[in-house]
Computed example of a mutant assay.
Amino acid sequence: MDITHKSPDLGNVRSPIDMANGLPNSHYINADVFEEERQAVLFDNWAGLGVGADVPDIGDAKPVTFLGMPLLLVRDRIGAVRVFQNICRHRGMILVAEPRKIEGAIRCPYHSWCYSTEGKLISTPHVGGPGQNTHEGIDKNLLGLIEVRSHVWMDVVWINISGTALPFEEANADLLARWTEFDKPLYHGGFDSRFELEVNCNWKLAVENYCESYHLPWVHPGLNSYSRLEDHYHIELADKYSGQGTLVYRQLKGEDGKTFPDFEGLSDKWNTAAEYITAYPNVLLGVHRDHAFAIILTPQGPEKTIESIHLYYAEQGTDAELRARNTTQWKEVFEEDIFVVEGMQRGRHAVGFDGGRFSPAMDGPTHMFHSWVAGQMERHRAPLAAE
């Protein structure tokens, strides 16, 4: 198979920013390249799947389809969040079709094989014939649910499907150290603090737009009126993460002057600062003195993405009216970006577009993401090219 013709000039993407081009069109519109990225970028790294708040109580289970793969989020009997392939080990039947509470066991609706919330196969009715629930050829210890490597941080459930990535704490050590002050309980705001946006663009364009503040004066004039372009700074760590920060975060206040409670133990920096970082590949995170958010980008194909947004607070039971206003405010900001990312997606169908150029002064975080994706693709293709 020719692995080079689909996506030329990736070496140039890795060039210094003043000489680099962006990723070529094929990385946004080509189904074959999308499949390559599925493995090299999303399956081989720690990708975001959902959040712990999706399964808040013991026994809660939620089916999730991730890049065509049926998965199951479960909170087990000791309260740990686990991820399994959502299939029975007998005939591959989907086990859980809708979010629900597991009462007793996860039962396959086809032949009634049953599994614990820890994934152990516990019952195989009639497997040895009518009335015979065991068979010497069926070793239950070898037929538990297939567990996907997972980790929870900032309430995001991260998965490494290939199993080849470094341990999460090692792969993301720099980001964990940067935000160690936020390594504390985060309380999901509840039903009024989550929403989804369906966007007609490749998932990477959502990352690229989130990384930079360059577009603020024109796309977010309301936000830019108090958190101006010149109040922002770049956040860059090559091959790890990138994003932006602001020095003038302004707390939301109710009519009575009430604000959300602050996270405890924050340094003075956070009195006025906030940071917005993409944890490669597909999780957009924001932290402030009084709330945080996580956005999980779930690709639906080369040209469609679901953005799942979740808002978190320092305490449970924060003011409901203020929470609703905060959700509305953030939804308006994120919706303002839709025409931009969808416009860039349409632009990727322009024959001859070379991936574009970067402003050396303003596009560092976005170039860093392009370079990381190109590096992941080169790593993946190297053994194929040698065959």
Results as ranks from 00 to 15, higher is better:
Pro63Lys: 10
Lys258Leu: 10
Gly137Cys: 12
Asn172Val: 10
Arg228His: 14
Asp155Thr: 07
Glu230Pro: 06
Tyr249Val: 11
Pro217Ile: 00
Ser225Met: 09
Asp139Ser: 14
His370Trp: 01
Gly22Asn: 07
Asn172Trp: 03
Arg379Cys: 04
Pro56Ser: 12
Thr259Pro: 01
Asn12Arg: 05
Cys108Ile: 08
Pro70His: 03
Lys331Arg: 15
His126Thr: 05
Asn141Cys: 12
Ser371Ala: 13
Trp203Cys: 00
Ser116Asp: 08
Leu42Lys: 10
His367Pro: 03
Ala374Tyr: 04
Phe191Ala: 15
Glu275Thr: 12
Thr117Asp: 11
Val207Ser: 01
Gly50Thr: 05
Gly243Trp: 03
Tyr226Asp: 15
Gln316Val: 14
Tyr110Arg: 13
Leu322Ser: 04
Pro8Gly: 07
Ile138Tyr: 00
Phe353Asn: 06
Ile309Asn: 08
Phe353Gly: 07
Cys108Met: 01
His310Ile: 07
Thr4His: 01
Ala274Cys: 12
Gly352Trp: 02
Val199Ala: 00
Thr366Phe: 04
Glu118Trp: 06
Glu169Val: 14
Ala294Asn: 01
Phe43Val: 09
Leu95Gly: 08
Ile161Lys: 11
Glu212Ala: 03
Leu284Gly: 02
Gly189Phe: 01
Thr117Tyr: 05
Glu332Gln: 12
Gly104Ser: 04
Ala274Glu: 02
Arg357Thr: 15
Glu321Val: 15
Leu186Gln: 06
Pro185Val: 12
Gly375Leu: 00
Trp218Gly: 09
Ala294Thr: 13
Val219Asn: 04
Trp153Lys: 05
Trp46Lys: 02
Ile106Ser: 06
Arg348Phe: 01
Tyr115Met: 08
Phe293Ile: 10
Arg38Ser: 00
Ile87Leu: 15
Ser225Val: 13
Ala279Phe: 02
Glu98Arg: 14
His380Cys: 03
Glu170Cys: 09
Asn21Pro: 06
Leu142Ala: 13
Asp256Leu: 08
Gln132Met: 14
Leu166Gln: 14
Pro299His: 02
Ala61Tyr: 14
Arg325Tyr: 04
Asp76Lys: 04
Leu176Met: 15
Glu98Cys: 15
Leu95Thr: 03
Arg178Ile: 00
Thr124Ile: 02
Asn200Tyr: 07
Gly131Ile: 09
Gly92Pro: 04
Gly189Tyr: 10
Thr259Met: 09
Arg82Ala: 11
Ser15Ile: 04
Val157Trp: 08
Glu236Pro: 01
Asp139Asn: 14
